[in-house]
Design a binder for these strands. Structure first.
Lengths: 336, 336
DNA sequence: TCTCTCCCTGAAAGCGCTCTCACGTGCGGC
DNA sequence: GCCGCACGTGAGAGCGCTTTCAGGGAGAGA
């Protein structure tokens, strides 16, 4: 039962194998400069005692922990809501970390106390580096950690200046393609349901919409949501009040687009005949909705992977570009 | 930039404050036996230098890491599929750990290499304890870790004998209530779509179905799925081939129930008039399906919380019951 | 046969912290 | 006025590991 305290140390292995601690350490860490007979003797001793190196002792001297923190500045309920964004990020990150034999430490929090914990935990060198996903507004923590010498990479172009490398997708390009598509298919009153304006994704997608319309003579019609299904439904209702004759809407997230479609249906609008709808995300379910959703695909899984890859590079001391922007792509289906 | 190496140690703080390392340590750890003037002098020095204790050094002597591993023996894609089971578990666990100021280390893997990593990581004392969710078949790892003195708690009654404490829900009780409901509402040919038979949840729910039918003169009609929507659809088709006259089906998971409903619809069966359907889980969406799903509610979030609570107790050296079984409850809606 | 290398191996220093133990000071009680 | 007792503080050991440095032995060249 409580053999807990009898866990063998390097010392014990060394004694059993009749060598020094240094030699055991070398064998365990795969140093090439140990003669074969000794190496196998040590291996046998390790096996026999079931020796596993103590992580804390090792980190203390190597200054590495082989773990990476992924900080999601959201409540756990939000992270695991029906929005697959975070799960995909986690998935992508964990793929890369697995390959690099690193551990993932998940930190979800949207409270001040939680944030302080994140700060303590990461600067206490519990982890070799920190990843931030989806930061709202101007978050000082990433920059602060970076200044303390902690490797940091974030998703989403940071608001405000920041020396922290980031990975993002081409929001503006994707949105412009979407709006252009609506223009080219003959729509004249193109509204948008924007995302929250304290998040880069929200800001940039609205900017893309405005930029593309500016080239035409159409005016912009805007409502703002918070990326949830419900907010999409509400915003759609509002848009129709503002302009009952609108004939297309670009919605800044698929989830909001689903909400918008519900509202349009309720109000008797046909899609796409009366109102064309384009989303942004390309979630799996968008393929199966009725009608299948035309949307801008952003490679979220890849975003997570790239995020992890960049951090691993920073940790390895390699030079990394200040920004990596992944392409987005318009996927035309039946809704527009 | 690379102030990384200039990070202050206890020693530095002690020097600045003009006291010994021991005293600084006491202040940092909130020991009551330090005189006020000295305490504040130390506090000031800590503040001034931005001192944060090194986690590895601390763990090395305290033997604690204040982190907990949650092992999900599934691929990340499965964990973050549309089945909200794992997300809810994670959510519940993280609620409790947050409250206890512990960190969550997520380990998802279904590969042998990944499993070895889990073993190394946890026995290297990277974490103070380990939580296992949803173990398939007979998994030796939990017991093995427990034997090494690592605190372990699992979800789901382990198959085979095991000295590891577990938390589970009352599968059998819930299923019996469901089947009883079908009997009482006059159904005579009650089939079931069971879950995978290498998982306790699958086994127990099938056992509950059989146990309840045994008391009646109805025969059992069984198909097996793997808890996914698709497998539910397929299994339903098979059941209808086996017995075209069946008038009710108990499905061992909501997701499979949704699949089964799709199939029933496709084949022109009305629900519940022709075939009554009862699920198991009570996922959020089951309230909104057409018709709303009658199902057995299992408290998954609470399962996660209880899991974490038990582990924290084990870590604290408290006695814990070998098993905690949370109640399930039949929720009657329109589908049966 | 002797010396010079080149490998291997071991001794020992420390990584940064906690915690036991011993010691000094100031106080009250007799 | 002296002793004893708290109470606070510091010295130092040690957690388990890596890594430098020096030394011993074997082999090669002279």
């Amino acid at each position: 039962m409580s053999q807990a305290h009898e866990r063998p140390t390097l010392e014990a292995v060394a004694r059993l194998a009749g060598v020094s601690r240094a030699t055991v350490s070398r064998v365990v860490n795969g140093s090439p400069k140990v003669a074969e007979p000794i190496r196998s003797a040590v291996r046998r001793a390790v096996e026999e005692l079931g020796y596993i190196p103590n992580a804390a002792a090792r980190s203390l001297v190597t200054q590495r922990t082989d773990s990476i923190a992924l900080v999601l500045p959201e409540s756990a309920s939000r992270v695991f809501s029906d929005d697959p964004f975070f799960p995909s990020i986690i998935h992508g990150v964990s793929q890369e970390l697995d390959a690099a034999d690193k551990q993932l430490v998940l930190m979800m929090t949207n409270t001040v106390a939680g944030y302080e914990r994140v700060e303590r935990y990461t600067t206490a060198r519990h982890v070799d580096g920190v990843l931030f996903a989806s930061t709202h507004g101007v978050d000082p923590l990433p920059g602060q950690l970076a200044r303390l010498g902690v490797p940091v990479v974030v998703t989403g172009r940071p608001l405000g200046r920041s020396a922290v490398p980031y990975v993002d997708v081409d929001h503006v390009g994707g949105v412009r393609a979407a709006v252009r598509h609506l223009l080219e298919t003959g729509h004249s009153r193109i509204a948008t349901i924007a995302g929250p304006q304290d998040m880069v994704a929200g800001i940039d997608r609205l900017a893309g919409y405005r930029a593309e319309l500016r080239g035409s003579d159409r005016r912009s019609i805007v409502a703002v949501g918070d990326f949830t299904r419900e907010s999409g439904a509400t915003a759609m209702r509002q848009l129709l009040e503002d302009d009952p004759l609108l004939d297309a809407v670009f919605v800044a997230s698929d989830l909001m687009a689903h909400g918008a479609i519900t509202t349009l249906r309720e109000l008797g609008r046909r899609i796409p005949e009366d109102v064309a709808v384009v989303g942004f995300d390309d979630f799996d379910i968008s393929r199966y909705t009725d009608p299948p959703l035309t949307t801008v695909r952003q490679p979220i899984l890849e975003l997570g992977r790239e995020l992890a890859r960049q951090l691993l590079r920073v940790i390895a001391g390699e030079e990394v570009p200040p920004a990596v922007v992944l392409p987005t792509e318009l996927v035309v289906r039946a809704s527009a």
